[in-house]
Protein backbone atom coordinates (compact mmCIF):
# COMPACT_ATOMS: atom_id res chain seq x y z
CA UNK A 1 0.00 0.00 0.00
CA UNK A 2 2.75 2.43 0.93
CA UNK A 3 4.39 1.64 -2.39
CA UNK A 4 1.15 2.74 -4.12
CA UNK A 5 1.04 5.99 -2.21
CA UNK A 6 4.70 6.76 -2.86
CA UNK A 7 4.43 5.96 -6.57
CA UNK A 8 1.53 8.42 -6.83
CA UNK A 9 3.13 11.14 -4.74
CA UNK A 10 6.25 11.20 -6.93
CA UNK A 11 4.11 12.58 -9.71
CA UNK A 12 2.47 15.28 -7.64
CA UNK A 13 5.28 17.83 -7.75
CA UNK A 14 5.90 17.90 -11.52
CA UNK A 15 2.16 17.91 -12.22
CA UNK A 16 1.61 20.83 -9.84
CA UNK A 17 4.52 22.72 -11.37
CA UNK A 18 3.24 22.33 -14.92
CA UNK A 19 -0.26 23.29 -13.87
CA UNK A 20 1.07 26.38 -12.07
CA UNK A 21 2.95 27.64 -15.10
CA UNK A 22 0.04 26.91 -17.43
CA UNK A 23 -2.44 28.65 -15.18
CA UNK A 24 -0.20 31.66 -14.78
CA UNK A 25 0.16 32.06 -18.53
CA UNK A 26 -3.51 31.35 -19.25
CA UNK A 27 -4.75 34.01 -16.83
CA UNK A 28 -2.45 36.57 -18.49
CA UNK A 29 -3.47 35.52 -22.00
CA UNK A 30 -7.10 36.45 -21.38
CA UNK A 31 -7.70 39.93 -22.77
CA UNK A 32 -8.51 42.53 -20.18
CA UNK A 33 -6.75 44.43 -17.48
CA UNK A 34 -7.08 44.38 -13.69
CA UNK A 35 -6.09 48.03 -13.32
CA UNK A 36 -8.86 49.25 -15.61
CA UNK A 37 -11.31 47.12 -13.70
CA UNK A 38 -9.98 48.37 -10.38
CA UNK A 39 -10.12 52.08 -11.16
CA UNK A 40 -13.80 52.10 -11.93
CA UNK A 41 -15.71 53.92 -14.59
CA UNK A 42 -14.10 57.30 -14.88
CA UNK A 43 -10.81 58.35 -16.54
CA UNK A 44 -8.14 58.17 -13.84
CA UNK A 45 -5.05 60.39 -13.74
CA UNK A 46 -2.32 58.53 -15.71
CA UNK A 47 0.14 58.82 -12.82
CA UNK A 48 -2.31 57.06 -10.54
CA UNK A 49 -2.72 54.24 -13.05
CA UNK A 50 1.05 53.86 -13.41
CA UNK A 51 1.48 53.80 -9.64
CA UNK A 52 -1.12 51.04 -9.29
CA UNK A 53 0.51 49.02 -12.04
CA UNK A 54 3.88 49.29 -10.31
CA UNK A 55 2.38 48.50 -6.92
CA UNK A 56 1.04 45.15 -8.16
CA UNK A 57 4.18 44.38 -10.16
CA UNK A 58 2.22 44.48 -13.41
CA UNK A 59 4.82 46.75 -15.01
CA UNK A 60 7.40 43.92 -14.91
CA UNK A 61 7.97 41.67 -17.92
CA UNK A 62 5.86 38.53 -17.86
CA UNK A 63 8.73 36.09 -17.23
CA UNK A 64 9.81 38.09 -14.19
CA UNK A 65 6.26 38.14 -12.86
CA UNK A 66 6.16 34.36 -13.23
CA UNK A 67 9.48 33.87 -11.42
CA UNK A 68 8.43 36.20 -8.62
CA UNK A 69 5.16 34.30 -8.29
CA UNK A 70 6.87 30.92 -8.13
CA UNK A 71 9.50 32.18 -5.70
CA UNK A 72 6.83 33.58 -3.38
CA UNK A 73 4.90 30.31 -3.66
CA UNK A 74 7.91 28.28 -2.59
CA UNK A 75 7.98 30.41 0.54
CA UNK A 76 4.32 29.63 1.11
CA UNK A 77 3.04 33.00 -0.07
CA UNK A 78 0.04 32.77 -2.41
CA UNK A 79 0.16 36.47 -3.18
CA UNK A 80 -2.05 39.46 -2.47
CA UNK A 81 -5.46 40.11 -3.98
CA UNK A 82 -5.60 43.30 -6.08
CA UNK A 83 -9.23 43.83 -5.24
CA UNK A 84 -9.78 42.47 -1.80
CA UNK A 85 -6.55 43.96 -0.48
CA UNK A 86 -6.07 40.79 1.45
CA UNK A 87 -3.57 37.96 1.29
CA UNK A 88 -4.91 35.36 -1.13
CA UNK A 89 -4.36 32.55 1.37
CA UNK A 90 -6.59 34.24 3.93
CA UNK A 91 -9.27 35.05 1.38
CA UNK A 92 -9.36 31.52 -0.03
CA UNK A 93 -9.31 29.91 3.40
CA UNK A 94 -12.47 31.76 4.49
CA UNK A 95 -14.27 31.00 1.24
CA UNK A 96 -13.15 27.38 1.09
CA UNK A 97 -14.66 26.79 4.52
CA UNK A 98 -17.98 28.18 3.32
CA UNK A 99 -17.92 25.99 0.22
CA UNK A 100 -17.13 22.94 2.34
CA UNK A 101 -20.09 23.76 4.58
CA UNK A 102 -22.26 23.58 1.49
CA UNK A 103 -20.57 20.71 -0.30
CA UNK A 104 -19.48 18.13 2.28
CA UNK A 105 -23.06 17.33 3.34
CA UNK A 106 -24.05 17.36 -0.32
CA UNK A 107 -21.41 14.80 -1.31
CA UNK A 108 -22.08 12.51 1.65
CA UNK A 109 -25.86 12.56 1.22
CA UNK A 110 -25.69 12.22 -2.56
CA UNK A 111 -23.19 9.36 -2.43
CA UNK A 112 -25.13 7.31 0.12
CA UNK A 113 -28.50 8.01 -1.49
CA UNK A 114 -27.08 7.41 -4.96
CA UNK A 115 -25.75 3.97 -4.06
CA UNK A 116 -28.96 2.97 -2.28
CA UNK A 117 -31.22 4.17 -5.08
CA UNK A 118 -29.01 2.53 -7.71
CA UNK A 119 -29.02 -0.72 -5.80
CA UNK A 120 -32.75 -0.64 -5.27
CA UNK A 121 -33.32 -0.01 -8.95
CA UNK A 122 -31.04 -2.91 -9.89
CA UNK A 123 -32.72 -5.34 -7.50
CA UNK A 124 -36.29 -4.29 -8.24
CA UNK A 125 -35.65 -4.18 -11.97
CA UNK A 126 -38.30 -1.50 -11.91
CA UNK A 127 -38.73 0.13 -15.29
CA UNK A 128 -40.28 3.22 -13.72
CA UNK A 129 -37.34 3.70 -11.36
CA UNK A 130 -34.86 3.26 -14.22
CA UNK A 131 -36.60 5.93 -16.20
CA UNK A 132 -36.74 8.22 -13.18
CA UNK A 133 -33.01 7.88 -12.51
CA UNK A 134 -32.11 8.45 -16.12
CA UNK A 135 -34.46 11.42 -16.32
CA UNK A 136 -33.03 12.91 -13.12
CA UNK A 137 -29.44 12.57 -14.19
CA UNK A 138 -30.13 13.81 -17.69
CA UNK A 139 -32.24 16.66 -16.30
CA UNK A 140 -29.69 17.52 -13.64
CA UNK A 141 -27.06 17.81 -16.31
CA UNK A 142 -29.04 19.68 -18.93
CA UNK A 143 -31.35 22.00 -16.99
CA UNK A 144 -29.18 24.99 -16.12
CA UNK A 145 -28.96 25.67 -12.42
CA UNK A 146 -29.43 29.39 -12.91
CA UNK A 147 -32.87 28.50 -14.19
CA UNK A 148 -33.91 25.73 -11.80
CA UNK A 149 -32.35 27.62 -8.89
CA UNK A 150 -34.29 30.76 -9.66
CA UNK A 151 -37.51 28.81 -10.02
CA UNK A 152 -36.95 27.38 -6.53
CA UNK A 153 -36.18 30.86 -5.16
CA UNK A 154 -39.27 32.40 -6.71
CA UNK A 155 -41.42 29.55 -5.42
CA UNK A 156 -40.08 28.95 -1.90
CA UNK A 157 -38.56 32.32 -1.00
CA UNK A 158 -40.51 34.98 -2.87
CA UNK A 159 -43.99 33.45 -3.06
CA UNK A 160 -44.28 31.00 -0.18
CA UNK A 161 -41.65 32.74 1.96
CA UNK A 162 -40.69 29.42 3.58
CA UNK A 163 -36.98 29.60 2.90
CA UNK A 164 -34.42 32.39 2.60
CA UNK A 165 -33.49 33.45 -0.93
CA UNK A 166 -29.85 34.40 -0.59
CA UNK A 167 -26.75 33.83 1.46
CA UNK A 168 -25.52 31.44 4.11
CA UNK A 169 -27.03 33.06 7.18
CA UNK A 170 -29.51 35.76 8.12
CA UNK A 171 -27.52 38.92 8.33
CA UNK A 172 -30.11 40.65 10.43
CA UNK A 173 -28.85 38.29 13.09
CA UNK A 174 -30.33 35.26 14.89
CA UNK A 175 -29.94 33.96 18.44
CA UNK A 176 -26.94 31.72 18.97
CA UNK A 177 -27.48 28.01 19.51
CA UNK A 178 -30.27 26.06 17.82
CA UNK A 179 -31.85 29.05 16.06
CA UNK A 180 -28.49 29.65 14.42
CA UNK A 181 -28.18 26.02 13.36
CA UNK A 182 -31.69 26.04 11.95
CA UNK A 183 -30.96 29.32 10.19
CA UNK A 184 -27.98 27.69 8.48
CA UNK A 185 -29.99 24.60 7.52
CA UNK A 186 -32.73 26.79 6.08
CA UNK A 187 -30.18 28.62 3.96
CA UNK A 188 -28.55 25.32 2.95
CA UNK A 189 -31.77 23.55 1.91
CA UNK A 190 -32.32 24.98 -1.57
CA UNK A 191 -28.73 25.09 -2.85
CA UNK A 192 -28.03 21.81 -1.04
CA UNK A 193 -31.05 20.05 -2.54
CA UNK A 194 -30.14 21.12 -6.06
CA UNK A 195 -26.55 19.98 -5.66
CA UNK A 196 -27.64 16.69 -4.04
CA UNK A 197 -30.08 15.95 -6.86
CA UNK A 198 -27.39 16.59 -9.44
CA UNK A 199 -24.66 14.53 -7.77
CA UNK A 200 -26.97 11.75 -6.66
CA UNK A 201 -28.29 11.15 -10.14
CA UNK A 202 -24.77 10.63 -11.45
CA UNK A 203 -23.92 8.14 -8.69
CA UNK A 204 -27.24 6.33 -8.96
CA UNK A 205 -26.88 5.79 -12.68
CA UNK A 206 -23.45 4.20 -12.33
CA UNK A 207 -24.49 2.25 -9.22
CA UNK A 208 -27.52 0.79 -10.96
CA UNK A 209 -25.43 -0.61 -13.81
CA UNK A 210 -22.71 -1.84 -11.46
CA UNK A 211 -25.19 -3.68 -9.24
CA UNK A 212 -27.05 -5.08 -12.22
CA UNK A 213 -23.86 -6.66 -13.51
CA UNK A 214 -22.61 -7.88 -10.15
CA UNK A 215 -25.93 -9.42 -9.26
CA UNK A 216 -25.59 -11.78 -12.22
CA UNK A 217 -22.38 -13.29 -10.74
CA UNK A 218 -22.30 -17.00 -9.91
CA UNK A 219 -21.43 -16.23 -6.31
CA UNK A 220 -24.87 -14.66 -5.94
CA UNK A 221 -26.56 -17.86 -7.07
CA UNK A 222 -24.27 -19.83 -4.76
CA UNK A 223 -24.98 -17.57 -1.83
CA UNK A 224 -28.72 -17.71 -2.39
CA UNK A 225 -28.54 -21.50 -2.73
CA UNK A 226 -26.64 -21.64 0.55
CA UNK A 227 -29.63 -19.91 2.12
CA UNK A 228 -28.10 -16.51 2.76
CA UNK A 229 -30.59 -13.72 3.24
CA UNK A 230 -31.13 -11.14 0.52
CA UNK A 231 -29.55 -8.46 2.69
CA UNK A 232 -26.38 -10.48 3.35
CA UNK A 233 -26.07 -11.34 -0.33
CA UNK A 234 -26.48 -7.72 -1.36
CA UNK A 235 -24.32 -5.94 1.19
CA UNK A 236 -21.64 -8.59 1.85
CA UNK A 237 -21.18 -10.04 -1.58
CA UNK A 238 -22.69 -7.88 -4.32
CA UNK A 239 -21.74 -4.48 -2.98
CA UNK A 240 -17.95 -5.01 -2.77
CA UNK A 241 -17.95 -6.23 -6.33
CA UNK A 242 -20.02 -3.28 -7.53
CA UNK A 243 -17.93 -0.72 -5.67
CA UNK A 244 -15.10 -0.02 -8.14
CA UNK A 245 -17.08 2.00 -10.67
CA UNK A 246 -19.01 3.65 -7.85
CA UNK A 247 -15.79 4.73 -6.13
CA UNK A 248 -14.62 6.16 -9.43
CA UNK A 249 -17.69 8.32 -9.86
CA UNK A 250 -17.86 9.36 -6.20
CA UNK A 251 -14.15 10.24 -6.35
CA UNK A 252 -14.82 12.30 -9.40
CA UNK A 253 -17.60 14.13 -7.57
CA UNK A 254 -15.20 14.84 -4.74
CA UNK A 255 -12.63 16.28 -7.11
CA UNK A 256 -15.38 18.78 -8.02
CA UNK A 257 -15.73 19.55 -4.32
CA UNK A 258 -14.58 23.14 -4.65
CA UNK A 259 -15.68 24.08 -8.14
CA UNK A 260 -18.75 21.87 -8.62
CA UNK A 261 -21.02 24.51 -7.16
CA UNK A 262 -19.92 27.70 -8.89
CA UNK A 263 -23.33 28.22 -10.43
CA UNK A 264 -25.19 27.13 -7.28
CA UNK A 265 -23.20 29.63 -5.24
CA UNK A 266 -23.84 32.38 -7.76
CA UNK A 267 -27.59 31.81 -7.87
CA UNK A 268 -28.03 31.48 -4.11
CA UNK A 269 -25.49 34.13 -3.10
CA UNK A 270 -23.47 31.55 -1.13
CA UNK A 271 -20.23 33.26 -0.09
CA UNK A 272 -18.02 30.39 -1.19
CA UNK A 273 -15.05 29.80 -3.40
CA UNK A 274 -17.17 29.69 -6.57
CA UNK A 275 -18.43 33.19 -5.88
CA UNK A 276 -14.96 34.60 -5.32
CA UNK A 277 -13.81 32.77 -8.46
CA UNK A 278 -16.54 34.34 -10.63
CA UNK A 279 -15.94 37.81 -9.23
CA UNK A 280 -12.19 37.49 -9.66
CA UNK A 281 -12.58 36.51 -13.31
CA UNK A 282 -14.62 39.65 -13.95
CA UNK A 283 -12.00 41.72 -12.14
CA UNK A 284 -8.95 39.93 -13.58
CA UNK A 285 -7.66 39.48 -10.07
CA UNK A 286 -4.73 37.29 -11.17
CA UNK A 287 -3.36 36.28 -7.76
CA UNK A 288 -6.78 35.06 -6.61
CA UNK A 289 -7.40 33.16 -9.85
CA UNK A 290 -4.01 31.48 -9.59
CA UNK A 291 -4.75 30.60 -5.98
CA UNK A 292 -8.10 29.04 -6.88
CA UNK A 293 -6.53 27.03 -9.70
CA UNK A 294 -3.81 25.78 -7.40
CA UNK A 295 -6.35 24.75 -4.76
CA UNK A 296 -8.48 22.93 -7.31
CA UNK A 297 -5.42 21.15 -8.70
CA UNK A 298 -4.44 19.96 -5.23
CA UNK A 299 -7.95 18.77 -4.42
CA UNK A 300 -8.17 16.90 -7.71
CA UNK A 301 -4.83 15.20 -7.12
CA UNK A 302 -5.84 14.33 -3.57
CA UNK A 303 -9.22 12.95 -4.66
CA UNK A 304 -7.53 10.79 -7.28
CA UNK A 305 -5.01 9.52 -4.76
CA UNK A 306 -7.74 8.59 -2.29
CA UNK A 307 -9.71 6.92 -5.07
CA UNK A 308 -6.67 4.81 -5.96
CA UNK A 309 -6.15 3.83 -2.34
CA UNK A 310 -9.80 2.91 -2.00
CA UNK A 311 -9.54 0.69 -5.09
CA UNK A 312 -6.74 -1.17 -3.37
CA UNK A 313 -8.69 -1.53 -0.16
CA UNK A 314 -11.87 -2.70 -1.82
CA UNK A 315 -10.39 -4.88 -4.51
CA UNK A 316 -7.78 -7.48 -3.55
CA UNK A 317 -6.79 -7.82 -7.22
CA UNK A 318 -5.62 -4.22 -7.35
CA UNK A 319 -3.79 -4.67 -4.07
CA UNK A 320 -2.08 -7.78 -5.37
CA UNK A 321 -1.07 -5.91 -8.51
CA UNK A 322 0.80 -3.32 -6.46
CA UNK A 323 2.34 -5.91 -4.20
CA UNK A 324 3.82 -7.69 -7.24
CA UNK A 325 5.08 -4.52 -8.90
Amino acid sequence: MSRLIVSRLIWVLPVVFIVLVMNFLLTRLVPGDPITALIGDFPAPPEYEARMRAEFGLDEPLWRQLLLYLWALVQGDLGYSFFNRQPVAQLLWERTLNTLLLMVPVLIISSVLGVLVGMYAAVQRSRALDVLISALSLGGKSVPIFWSGQVLIILFAVNLQWLPAQGMQSIRGVDPGWPQVWDFVAHWLMPGAIAVAFNMAIVARVARVAFKESILGDYVTTGRAAGLSQRVVLFRHVMPNAMIPIITVVGNNFSNLLTGTIMVEAVFGWPGLGQVFMTSIAQRDYPVLQGVFLLVTLVTILANLITDILYAIVDPRVRAGYARA
Binding site: Q166, A266, F268, G269, Q275
Partner: peptide, 8 residues
Protein backbone atom coordinates in the same frame (compact mmCIF):
# COMPACT_ATOMS: atom_id res chain seq x y z
CA UNK B 1 -25.19 42.57 1.52
CA UNK B 2 -23.04 41.17 -1.29
CA UNK B 3 -25.34 39.91 -4.06
CA UNK B 4 -23.36 39.34 -7.26
CA UNK B 5 -26.22 38.14 -9.48
CA UNK B 6 -28.42 40.98 -10.67
CA UNK B 7 -31.60 38.89 -10.68
CA UNK B 8 -30.93 37.73 -7.13
Amino acid sequence: QVLPQSSS
